[in-house]
Amino acid sequence: MVEFQILLPAILNGLTTGAVYALIALGLTLIYGVLHIINFAHGSLLMLAMYAVFFLHAGLGIDPYLALPVVVPGFFALGYLLQRGVIARASHGRDENILLVTLGVSIVIENLARYFWRSDTRTIETPYSFETVDLGVAFIAVPKVVAFAGALLVTLALWWVMSRTDLGRAIRALAKERQGARLVGIDVDHIFAMSFGIGTACVAAAACLLLPSFYVSPGVGHTFVLIAFTVVVLGGMGSFAGALIGGLIIGVTESLCGLYLGESLGQIGIFLIFIAILLFRPTGLLGHRA
């Protein structure tokens, strides 16, 4: 049985791929958990961040990992402005309108990217692109190991911000009780925008960690956005540990279903898990009852 021989390496691969999914989902779960909006623009923001990383590398020779301190704050600001200047203003706080606005924003970003940067698929080559770590049972590509560690660190950082800072407390208060938060003097619009900014910053971190092992094109967001939603629901909306665990579970599920059902049909496993979680435990693995 071929499948059995490569079972262990396949699980390891699933874990590293899953860590990338978790990274992308972390920002989404924050936005989803606090603002209760399905952010259709998440994928296109990921794409935009990947282009930023690409051009920093291609133009200035900055290594994608060293680009983190530039790209992450930049995208935090972008996210803040996007929520405050566009999404909040255009949607009048109504769910269906937020949906359309984020959809519109994603159409704009994606097609401007096509116009300015053409639709070519671009990759970067770093000294470690083809390097692997030999774990005895499997070779794991270095960028994937880094992404795995990065996912853990970003989760920890988010957890720290949310539980140890005033900002985090305000965000949590807002997520639980909008009216109450307003009454105790929390600047709701500001905190909403901060949440969106942090969520966007997370996606920028994901872009830095992802690009060395992937590619970027104007449509690359679509590759990950559905998976990210799956992870968010699986882990529980607004739960960072949930997103991490959810990402890893989805990664391993995808890997094993691919192994046993074929890479084509195997994708179905992700969505069946997704549906099952929605039906039987809609709060997700680590979510709280709303």
Partner: peptide, 17 residues
Amino acid sequence: AGLDLALYGVLLVLMVM
């Protein structure tokens, strides 16, 4: 290529606004 769809997106946002 793409610019018309970008404008479509902008108009969509404006319509909602």
